[in-house]
Design a protein around this nucleic acid. Structure first.
Lengths: 213, 213
DNA sequence: ATCACACTGTTAATTATTTCACATAGAATA
DNA sequence: TATTCTATGTGAAATAATTAACAGTGTGAT
C-alpha cells in the first residue's frame, strides 16, 4: 500500500525515533500533536516531520494534528510490517552487555535471543536475560532459533571472521560496532557504528565552532 | 591553508576512519597505497577516496599512490590542527565503561580525563584508568581541567539535565548516547548515537532484502 | 451556515553528497 | 630522451536529502 519505491535511510532512522518518542508521549496520556510539536521534541523542522510521516501513508485530520496512537501503529507497519525478528549478539564485553541490558528492556518487535562469546567463563551463563553460547555453536544455534539479525561487538581483529560465520549461518542484517568495515555480499545489509570516529567528528566541529567565535 | 569553506560532515567521518586504518597499515610496514586499495579496505569507491583526500590538501605522487605516513600527518592536521582536546564522560554504566576502556587505549589527540556519576559507590574510584567524580562537582572539575568535550551515557531521563550542566560548564561539543535529542544552543555542537534506532534500521533493510529475493 | 484560521500533504526549489569522466602527471621502460 | 601507462585531482553531472512554499481541508467561532 505505502512506499512505491523505497523510503530513504535517513527517514527510516527518524521514523524509528519518532515511534519511540511518540510511544512515550502516549504513555503520558497525550493523544494528539502537531508536526511543529514533534519537531520541537526531535530537534528538527516541521517540514521534515511532515515529509517523513508522509512516507508512512498516515493522514492526519488537519486541524487537530496527528492522533498519536494511530500514527504509532502506522509507523510500526511501515518499519517492519510489524513482523518479529530475532537477533544474535556476538561478543560479551562491556559494550555487548550494555546493549543486551538496554535493548531487551525495550518492548519491540525485535529481541536479542542469544549471545555468543569465545570465553569459556561466559559460556552457558545467562547475561542480561540472555544465554551465552560458545561461538563454535553459532551457526547451529542461529539456524535452530531462526535468527535473522546480528550485532557484532567483538574486537576489530575478529570482526571479519565473525561476520563470515554469520553470513554462512544465513543472517541477513548486521550491525557492526567493531572499528573495521566488513566485506560482505550485497545480500546482507550491514551498518556500522564507529564510536571513536563519532567522537573525533564532535571534536572537529566543536573546535571549529570555538575558532569561529 | 586547506579547506576554503568547510569540509562536509560525511567526509570528516571518513577521514577519521581512513586515519585509523592507515595508521594500522603503517604499523605493518606498508608505505604506499592507491586510492583503489583504500577503497577496498573501507568498502567504498576510489573516486570517493580521492575526493575525500583532496580536502586535506595532500598531493600524492601520482604513479606510486599515497605515501601513508605523510597522508596520516595531513589528515591529522585537517581533523584537529593536531590540538589536544580533553573529554569528560558522564554516566558510568556498562556503556560508559565500554567507551572508557576502549577509547583511552587508542592513541589520539583526544583523551577522556574525567568521568562523572551520581552513584556514590562509583565516585572516587578509578575506572578504566579514569577517576570518577560525583556529578555535583561536574562544573568545577570541567573548568579546572579545561575540558572541551563530553560524552553522555546516562539514562534518557537524565540526559537533558546533564547536557545543561555541561553547557554552563562551558563544554563546546557533546556526543550523546541517551535515547533523547538534546535541546542546546547552536554554540554547542552535538551529535547523537542511537543504538536502538540503528538496530531497527538494520531490521528494516534486512527484511526488505529478504522480501526482494 | 459561513468564515477564518492554523495545520497538513505535496510539489518545487535548494542544498549536500556521490559518482562520472577525463585531462594531467610522473614513474618505468626502452 | 621519448613513450607508454596507470592513478591522480577535479570540474561537471547525477543523485539524495532538506527546506520552502502553498493550495487544500476540517474545526471552532460567530
Amino acid at each position: 500500500m505505502n512506499s512505491k519505491k523505497g523510503i530513504p535511510e535517513k527517514t527510516i532512522e527518524r521514523l524509528a525515533m519518532y515511534r519511540r518518542l511518540l510511544s512515550g508521549l502516549k504513555e503520558k496520556g497525550l493523544e494528539h500533536l502537531y508536526s511543529h510539536q514533534l519537531a520541537e521534541f526531535t530537534r528538527n523542522t516541521p517540514a521534515q516531520i511532515r515529509r517523513d510521516l508522509m512516507m508512512t501513508g498516515y493522514v492526519s485530520n488537519a486541524r487537530k494534528g496527528y492522533t498519536i496512537g494511530d500514527l504509532v501503529k502506522k509507523i510500526d507497519e511501515t518499519l517492519a510490517g510489524s513482523q518479529r525478528q530475532k537477533i544474535a549478539l556476538v561478543g560479551i564485553g562491556n559494550l555487548g552487555r550494555a546493549i543486551l541490558s538496554y535493548f531487551n528492556n525495550q518492548h519491540s518487535a525485535l529481541s536479542i535471543v542469544a549471545s555468543f562469546d569465545n570465553d569459556d567463563t561466559k559460556v552457558n551463563r545467562v547475561i542480561a536475560g540472555c544465554r551465552c553460547y560458545h561461538i563454535k555453536d553459532l551457526e547451529a544455534k542461529i539456524k535452530e532459533e531462526g535468527i535473522d539479525l546480528a550485532i557484532i561487538t567483538v574486537p576489530g581483529h575478529h570482526a571479519q571472521e565473525v561476520a563470515e560465520k554469520l553470513e554462512s549461518a544465513g543472517i541477513t542484517g548486521i550491525l557492526n560496532f567493531a572499528p573495521v568495515p566488513l566485506k560482505l555480499p550485497d545480500s546482507i545489509y550491514s551498518d556500522r557504528i564507529d564510536i571513536t570516529t563519532a567522537i573525533e567528528k564532535v571534536a572537529y566541529f566543536a573546535s571549529k565552532i570555538r575558532k569561529e567565535l
